[in-house]
Amino acid sequence: MIDYRAYLKEYDGPPVRIMEICGTHTAAISHNGIPSLLSPKIQLISGPGCPVCVTVTEYIDRLIELSLTKDTVVATFGDMIRVTGSRQSLQDVKADGAQVRMVYSPLDMLRLAQEEPSKTFVFAAVGFETTIAVYAALLDEAIRQNIRNIRLLTSLKTMPRVIDWVCTMQGGIDGFLAPGHVSVITGSDMYEPLAKKHGVPFAVAGFEGEQLLMALYALVRTIERGDGRVMNLYPSVVSAKGNETAQHMISKYFTVCDAAWRGMGVVPDSGMILRREFEGYDAGSQFLYSDHSHHPKCRCAKVITGAEKPNDCALFGTLCTPETPQGACMVSTEGSCFSYFVNRRKA
């Protein structure tokens, strides 16, 4: 049996930089104390996989505008309420009478909309492939039940193009810990073209400590061999082709579009938007591209792409804390700044 723990702790080869793309992985890495189990030569970089963090300010501004519109209620996951747009957050405008409801699941929209049929409920639909499937299910159900007062303001992102962006525009990443939840929907084959094109390995991993360590071990060994391949280390739930029913649901309601990412600008074909035949459910999601950091020194944009570490930012832990977040990465529990702050991570 290979002692992968000892290998990871004592690794003394060339320095490797591994990006965990998914925000849930960032949180799991902190929770499991993974950095303390790695050689200083193995560096973990958080990637653009926290849905709240990658959202541009114009989208937040549009949500705020909707929340202040008569007979309109914005429903959202909790984290989004505290993210500041170009000037304010949904939390700030609640005091001005904005209608904002926090929900645990997009499917809660069905109940809300039925209880108050005279109001329009707009869901702040951010997220990646996993969550897009849930939005598709919501629309499917709303149409089936003939509920007409539901809208989505979408800022939906997909993984392959943005990973390509990180490799092409930025570089410096030797291997990727591929997102477990997203891969359940998309399948692990999605990473094959990227692995070939850029010659870097991908390991699809779960979220438990052992699963993370195994995946990191597999990545470091594969990087050493210079082998750009895809490894599915989460086969209990991730298949090569993914969940085809969910993929079908997604493509029934959504189509590929260009998307704006905080810190990266508009990345072609990296998002999804409602298909034209369902645009009646869209609350004005097109072309929300503009992005202005709330604080001029906020480094969220650099942190999201892995160009800088959270603690490289001058605001980190001083002006910017989870109580006084200056950027989205400090708001979301999946944001890398939040994760570094609450676990006092240094690496």
Partner: peptide, 18 residues
Amino acid sequence: AGGTRMMTELYGEGLPRI
């Protein structure tokens, strides 16, 4: 997992992830 993790007080409301 055998690692160490520093912990602070709770920030935020402990919401389910999205």
